[in-house]
Write a protein that binds this DNA or RNA. Sequence first.
DNA 1: GATGCTTAGATTATCAGACAATCTATTTCA
DNA 2: TGAAATAGATTGTCTGATAATCTAAGCATC
Lengths: 227, 227
Amino acid sequence: MLETVPRSKLRDVVADRLKAFIVEGNLKSGDRLPTETELATKFGVSRLSLREATKSLEFLGIVEAKPGRGLTVGSVNMERVTEYLGFHPALHDVSPEELIDTRVLIETGVLPHVARRMKRDDTLYVKLNAINADLRHARSLARWVELDIDFHRELICASGLSPLMAFTDVLAVFFQRFRESVKKAEWSQGIDSHQFILDKLKSGRVREADQELRTHIESHRERMELH
Amino acid sequence: MLETVPRSKLRDVVADRLKAFIVEGNLKSGDRLPTETELATKFGVSRLSLREATKSLEFLGIVEAKPGRGLTVGSVNMERVTEYLGFHPALHDVSPEELIDTRVLIETGVLPHVARRMKRDDTLYVKLNAINADLRHARSLARWVELDIDFHRELICASGLSPLMAFTDVLAVFFQRFRESVKKAEWSQGIDSHQFILDKLKSGRVREADQELRTHIESHRERMELH
DNA sequence: GATGCTTAGATTATCAGACAATCTATTTCA
DNA sequence: TGAAATAGATTGTCTGATAATCTAAGCATC
């Protein structure tokens, strides 16, 4: 009984093929694509069906279309994605445990790289330190969460591993869910934790930084239990 | 000069209004929406324009459409989002070193979780083992690469950390970039490496599996030097 | 020769109407 | 009563056409 049989909708197939076309052609942002009519005949579908595929991709920012100019390759519009993902209550599909484990994995994994780059580039420490300083003066909860996300994002950026940057945006969406579990009482504790991690990294004590960061993130786990 | 002036495209407006319709009506997953014709007249656009909006939202899983049944509110399709995350600007022009470092970080970071889940779920080992078995009988280089990607993808999936699924696209980029460095000569070596990692994971020896996987991935680094 | 304007072509944006495919609900028959 | 056939509703896809918009070539002017 294949009730949930994936009735291969035409536009999904076309979207896949178009995506493959971009990847295989190694096309970069701004590169021109064939016209709608050409792509339609190439894929063997009507222009309308092709449009439904391109419009879906355009909604994500993956392709851009302008009259008179044609289709060009774009890049994922994260604002658009988070806007439509954030409003939806169904975001709770991913368990808090998964989110925490993922954060621990990525952020602790990044530490050795950060420490290594800190030795040659002082600005990394300065930048992270500045965010933590701002954190001390945050008045509202919203501002605090914003800066907290910034800190962890910059920590990942400091590793120099740009592929991980793609994750930070998606993770940021998930982090919003922990907003509720952040109490004013824990502000100072979190700031001290950040500072401890920074200073240990600067002096090359990766293991101690790792231990602290792990505790810092997993502290959310207990708070989630209460709900 | 506003070249990037946001010419309010019709479907974006419609998508916004549809989103507002869902929010204001406090509609939940599975709730029915008006038909395409009704929504089209309600918003004062043609059915086709409305479709372009709904299809965009459907691409993200926010609405679902079935012939004969109509439109319903869906749940966000996270896989779809992460699947197309490969087009994130951060993934453009990454150096081979970064790709290797990122792979090592993610894949070794995943190992403890995989080992833990393997204890309770035998199918994980079976599935990975089956892929590796297929790998032995791969005739063409293309087929070999495909299965190799499958293996590493399933390794990540076996961790149960769904946010990391986005990484599969990074894998695709990696193998695309390193296609040249994969020679038939290394086939058997890679298969043995996979098998070693699997067996160590099954017996809970995470550290040994970690060491082997690290070497396995970083072997590409030396080969790149030659070019 | 260089510069600015005009025009023609190309391409997407939007529309209208039609038929096919598929699901739901009713009706019909045993 | 229960199952099968039927009718209606709804989305999926197609064809064709017109409007809006951009690009580039051509032209005139200086």
